[in-house]
Design a protein around this nucleic acid. Structure first.
Length: 322
DNA sequence: TTAAAACACCGCCACG
DNA sequence: CGCGTGGCGGTGTTTT
């Protein structure tokens, strides 16, 4: 049996505790229900102490920089507020060589400055907290900075926006490794919403909207979630919300950061993935149960959004669950 | 794969 | 004036 997937999370002076905590929550908690192949979590000091978090709390970690050489995934929480231009050279080198031998690099918020300094993001898309985008573009002009997304997945280097978006990225990583059902289970335990896609806006226009305005929208959102299998048009949804189609579309974007159809497609695909992982229903049946109408249609979207076919996707999970 | 019909999206603008 | 609304139509996407 292969050794467990090792997730090394970097600890340093000026550590952002919330983001470190997100990595701990997702990868570090004991999860016997996930079976023996769950992650091995290593907190690694990448410089000599004493190390203080950005809030002044002193931290010590049980592992050191050398563990990065054996990690399959390296998580880099928010980097200290100073020193964005040239993070610790030994740390940057360790990240570069880990990446070169195939390790996956996952950054939260300003953690992006480390792979950026290592040259791993040149001419590639990446994101960070909106407060630091200008600085990232200035220090690394060749990076294709994505301004209004929650996270970006390049396969080998994954970057995410402000603090809480790190949770969405970590859940995405779990979904890639263990399937959406596993990611949903982690999300449920952490009591966060199951999934926000990478393309979702970093700041929605009305983050804390007044109740009067949004309850109808929330009702519609919940209704959509509960009726994914049924055909629905924007006109229907607008009527359900007692708004004109034009206003409904605008409010929808304001509240969710996407358009109704894209949101629906996300949800339907998620549901389809879930059914493929957890049932043995035929592709046609899965398509019908998730609102795609026909297997052909499901295959089309599966390929466009996820780059595989439903059957291939399922087989990676049925083989892993032995 | 292509074709065509239906639908979604969004800029534009008049209206209250 | 500023602000949200909602109808119109061009363009792109989705479905069959």
């Amino acid at each position: 049996m292969a050794r467990r997937h090792r997730v090394a999370t970097a600890v340093y002076d000026g550590l952002a505790m919330l983001e470190f905590g997100i990595a701990t929550e997702v990868f570090g908690l004991a999860r016997p229900e996930m079976g023996p192949d769950w992650y091995e979590f290593l907190a690694c000091s990448v410089e000599d102490g004493p190390l203080r978090s950005e809030s002044g709390i002193t931290v010590t970690a049980p592992h050191g920089l050398d563990e990065l050489a054996t990690a399959d995934t390296i998580v880099i929480p928010g980097w200290r507020w100073h020193d964005h231009a040239a993070p610790l050279p030994p740390f940057v080198d360790a990240v570069r060589s880990a990446h070169a031998r195939g390790a996956r690099i996952v950054t939260l918020c300003t953690g992006v400055f480390v792979p950026a300094a290592a040259g791993l993001l040149d001419a590639r898309p990446a994101t960070t907290h909106w407060l630091y985008m200008e600085e990232l573009m200035r220090l690394h002009p060749s990076i294709d900075v994505q301004r209004n997304v929650l996270w970006v997945d390049n396969g080998d280097v994954l970057t995410s926006a402000g603090s809480a978006a790190g949770m969405d990225l970590c859940l995405h990583v779990v979904a890639c490794d263990h399937g959406t059902a596993a990611a949903n289970s982690v999300a449920r335990r952490a009591v966060v919403p199951p999934h926000r896609s990478g393309g979702q806006a970093q700041y929605v226009e009305t983050p804390v909207p007044d109740l009067d305005d949004t309850i109808p929208l929330h009702d519609v959102l919940a209704w959509m979630d509960g009726h994914l299998a049924e055909p629905m048009t924007v006109r229907d949804l607008a009527r359900r919300a007692a708004l004109s189609p034009r206003t409904f579309a605008r409010r929808f974007r304001g509240a969710t950061g996407t358009t109704p159809n894209r949101w629906l497609l996300e949800r339907r695909l998620r549901a389809a993935q879930d059914l493929l992982e957890t049932t043995c229903a035929s592709v046609d049946r899965v398509a019908a149960a998730t609102g795609f109408g026909s297997g052909e249609n499901l295959r089309h979207h599966f390929r466009a959004q996820l780059g595989t076919s439903p059957t291939a996707y399922r087989s990676t999970f049925t083989r892993a669950a032995s």
